[in-house]
Simulated scan of single mutants.
Amino acid sequence: MVAWRPAVPGISEVFHARIVNYEYPKHCHDTWTVLIVDDGAIRYDLDTRHHGAVGRTVSILPPGVVHNGYPSRRTGHFRKRNLYLDSGFLPLDLVGRAVDGSSFEDAALRAAIGALHDRLTAPDPLDVEERLAAIAERFRHRLLRRPPVVRDPEPTVADGLRDYLDGHLTGDVTLKNAAHLLDRSVAHLVRSFTRRYRISPHAYVIGARIDLARKLLLDGVPPARVAAETGFHDQAHLTRHFTRHVSIPPGRYAAGYPKAASGS
C-alpha cells in the first residue's frame, strides 16, 4: 500500500493498495476518484446505486457522494490504483450521471489511466496536464452517453500555442493558461498542436529546453545551473531527459569539449 501527492496541479493524491477481506465504511471525498483494478474485483455502493469494477473496467466516483467499498465475494480481494482529482476535473453537473453510471468498459481510457499512473512517480507537469485533459474529455463523452463532437484542429491555434510555449520556455508552462489566452480547451490545444507540428506540446518543450541546455553546457555552465536556467526541476530532471535525447548525461556531454588555448 502506498500513497503520495505528486508535485503537479490537479491531482490531490495517488493511492495504490491491495485489499483483502476488508470493507471500507461509508465515506465521501471532495475530489473525483478514478479507480482501476489490476487484480480481483471490487463492489461499492454509491449513494443508492450498486456498482462493481474488475480489470476490464474504469470507475469514477464523484465528489461529495457517500460510498463504501469491499471485495467481491467471488475473489475476496482486489488490487487497485486510485487517482484523487481536484473537483474541477469534470463539470459538477456530471455528478448525477457518474452516480448512475459509475463504471464502464473502455480499453483506451483504462490504458490512458494506467500510463498516467506509470509517470506519476517522477512526473513532468506539462505531460501530466496533457494526459489529464485527454482523460477528462473521454470521461465527459462516456458520462454524457453520446458520440464525441470533436472540434477540428486549428492551425492558427497551434501557432498561437507555439508562440506561448516559446515565450515561457524556461519558466512555468501550463496549458491551462494557454487555453485561457487562446479561448480553447486544453484538449483542443493539444490536438491542434500535435496535428500541425507532429509532436505534443510537452515533447516540444522538452526538446527546446534540451537544445538550450546543450548550448549552455558548451559555454561551460555547470549542469546544476543549466537545469535551473532551462526550466527543469533540478539536475536529476535535466539528466533524465538529456540522456534520453542525447544518449549521454549532461556532465559528460561537454567534458571533452576542447578549451581555447590561452595566448602567450
Score class of each variant (00 low, 15 high):
P223K: 10
A7T: 12
A17Y: 11
H67N: 07
T48R: 09
L169G: 10
V246D: 06
N82V: 08
V128E: 03
Y204S: 05
H16M: 07
V54Q: 12
S200P: 02
A17W: 03
F193T: 02
V8M: 10
P125T: 06
P62S: 04
I11F: 08
V58I: 11
V128K: 02
L218C: 09
V8N: 09
A107R: 14
L35K: 03
Y257Q: 10
T57P: 00
H117P: 00
S264D: 14
D183K: 05
V150A: 05
A179H: 01
P153C: 03
L175N: 05
H202C: 09
G207R: 13
S102D: 04
A108M: 05
R56G: 06
H51L: 03
G251F: 07
D45Q: 14
P125V: 04
A158F: 04
E137M: 01
S12C: 10
L109C: 07
F242Y: 10
D172P: 04
P9V: 02
V20L: 10
T243V: 04
I36P: 11
G101E: 14
K176Q: 06
R198H: 12
R79A: 11
P222T: 05
T174M: 04
P63Q: 09
I113Q: 06
F104D: 07
T33K: 01
R196P: 00
F78P: 10
D159Q: 12
T33A: 12
I206D: 04
V226P: 11
A17S: 15
R119A: 08
V2Q: 15
I210A: 10
H117R: 09
I135C: 00
G171Y: 10
A236H: 12
D159N: 03
R195D: 06
A134H: 01
R138S: 01
P71K: 12
L35I: 13
R195S: 09
V149D: 09
T57I: 00
L216S: 08
R119G: 15
A122G: 06
R195G: 00
V157C: 10
D38K: 14
R97D: 11
G40D: 11
R79M: 02
H117I: 04
L181T: 08
K80F: 01
A203Q: 11
R184N: 05
D86Q: 12
L132S: 02
I135K: 00
L169V: 06
P25W: 05
L181P: 00
I199G: 02
V54A: 14
F242N: 09
L120I: 07
I135D: 01
A261M: 04
I19L: 11
S262E: 14
D211I: 00
S185K: 01
G40R: 06
L181I: 10
G96L: 04
R209P: 03
V95H: 07
E154W: 02
A112F: 00
G114Y: 08
L175P: 03
L94W: 02
H29I: 06
K26S: 08
